[in-house]
Design a protein around this nucleic acid. Sequence first.
DNA 1: GTACTATATGCCTATGCAGTAGTATAGTTC
DNA 2: GAACTATACTACTGCATAGGCATATAGTAC
Lengths: 111, 111
Amino acid sequence: MGREPLSPEMLGLVAGRFRALAEPARLQILQALRGGELAVGHLVEATGMGQANVSKHLQLLLTHGYVSRRKEGLFSYYTIADRSVFELCDIMCGKLAEQTTQRRRVLARRA
Amino acid sequence: MGREPLSPEMLGLVAGRFRALAEPARLQILQALRGGELAVGHLVEATGMGQANVSKHLQLLLTHGYVSRRKEGLFSYYTIADRSVFELCDIMCGKLAEQTTQRRRVLARRA
DNA sequence: GTACTATATGCCTATGCAGTAGTATAGTTC
DNA sequence: GAACTATACTACTGCATAGGCATATAGTAC
């Protein structure tokens, strides 16, 4: 969010990108792809989700540019196209850790 | 997202934090608060949303630790408690800008 | 006390979307 | 060609939640 206010249109786009990451299933897929490209079938195995479900999540991640697709014969191989997602997740995890320790401190104080 | 896979519980928490930012209305509120603390009434004015709606969004942002609240008499003043949201938004905006220029390039190539 | 104001909460409806099942498409093998 | 496989698409169900209205709560002024 830059210094000057974002246009309503821009706010919608940014919110949309956040929404794409607002699902454990999709984060799980991105995490699985961290090691390198995988076909849909591998992701189904890795996540334990249904094939249609995985395919839909991949479609969404694709349209938002988080992953890219390479078709080879019967298989579709997906790769992370935007490594900055990991940066985003790291920031989130950092804040979560902060909050957790803070809560512990509060609880400890009350005890 | 660290090197080692996150637990399912952690994925849920991270997703929850992303979800809190996955709404234009909430991004608008955060943007309005960028200049400093504001009472609910001011945010209602600034955003043009209903009071109840603003209040509910603030509640969510509060529970996720993005804002903090200071009560003074009849008023509740809200402030950004986690400046990293702006960092997150900047990353998003950067990627959006990248994608836009890429799309323009593709369109130009086709023309 | 009453009247008023600022914020929070509960109820409601509509919308969006995750997940599932079934089907369609496209490539491979024989 | 037929049979099979991997992926994508369609239709549906159920749940979460945004937004609006009305009301509750809490503080102020008189």
